[in-house]
């Protein structure tokens, strides 16, 4: 059973639709016992960092998430990925979950269309089980105006948009984050979600 953490942010139905399509059981939940008994966790999210972090804090799930992320596969998607970092500077400095080293700040390269919206090509920098079976010409769907700033050890894939934009990050153990939306990235995204679920088996 995959638990999709429903803390009030994001298009959580799309993630569930994709898991249903792949034939994996999932629930949308904010219940601590359901989160603890799940085989893997997904943290979705769209919108602004401070508002989402506040919703997470208000939901009382922060400690549970931090503890569970050390024990089972955990995937943050889009803003859910950004929340994994230590802090963000979206509107104001705001603390994140600190599960992955690094921070989040605006994409500032001059002349770029912002948001970074659309399909961009994945470039791989390190092996990760999340990216098993992907080829050299895989496009995934991004929509964001802020990006992660992280070190090479935590970066698994990136794309080129003015500079390197981290696309897949992780702590090297259970925690993964994807800046793009795998649930909206066609066949490539479905492969990534499948890889994630298979890690919990």
């Amino acid at each position: 059973m995959i638990a999709i953490i429903d803390y009030g942010a994001g298009n959580i139905f799309s993630v569930k639709n994709a898991l249903d399509y792949l034939g994996f059981d999932s629930i949308l939940t904010r219940d601590v016992s359901e989160i603890k008994s799940a085989d893997a966790l997904i943290l979705p999210g769209v919108g602004a960092f401070p508002a989402a972090m506040k919703m997470l804090v208000d939901s009382g799930l922060v400690d549970t998430i931090k503890e569970q992320a050390k024990q089972k596969p955990f995937l943050g998607i889009c803003l859910g990925m950004q929340l994994l970092f230590e802090k963000s500077y979206e509107f104001e400095e705001c603390k994140g979950l600190s599960l992955v080293q690094g921070y989040v700040d605006k994409i500032t390269e001059p002349g770029l269309v912002i948001p970074h919206m659309g399909w961009n090509k994945l470039e791989f920098s390190q092996h990760s089980p999340l990216l098993n079976g992907l080829g050299n010409d895989e496009y995934v769907y991004f929509v964001h105006s802020y990006k992660a700033f992280c070190n090479d050890e935590t970066l698994f894939a990136f794309c080129d948009y003015g500079s390197r934009v981290p696309a897949v990050v992780g702590d090297g153990k259970f925690v993964f984050g994807s800046q793009f939306h795998p649930e909206k990235s066609g066949e490539t995204g479905l492969k990534i979600l499948k890889n994630f679920v298979l890690m919990s088996r």
């Binding site: 139905f13 799309s14 639709n17 994709a18 249903d20 399509y21 769907y141 929509v143 649930e183 909206k184 990235s185 066609g186 995204g189 479905l190």
Partner: peptide, 8 residues
């Protein structure tokens, strides 16, 4: 559509 089409 959202159940079987995984693009925006």
């Amino acid at each position: 559509t959202a159940k079987k089409v995984f693009v925006p």
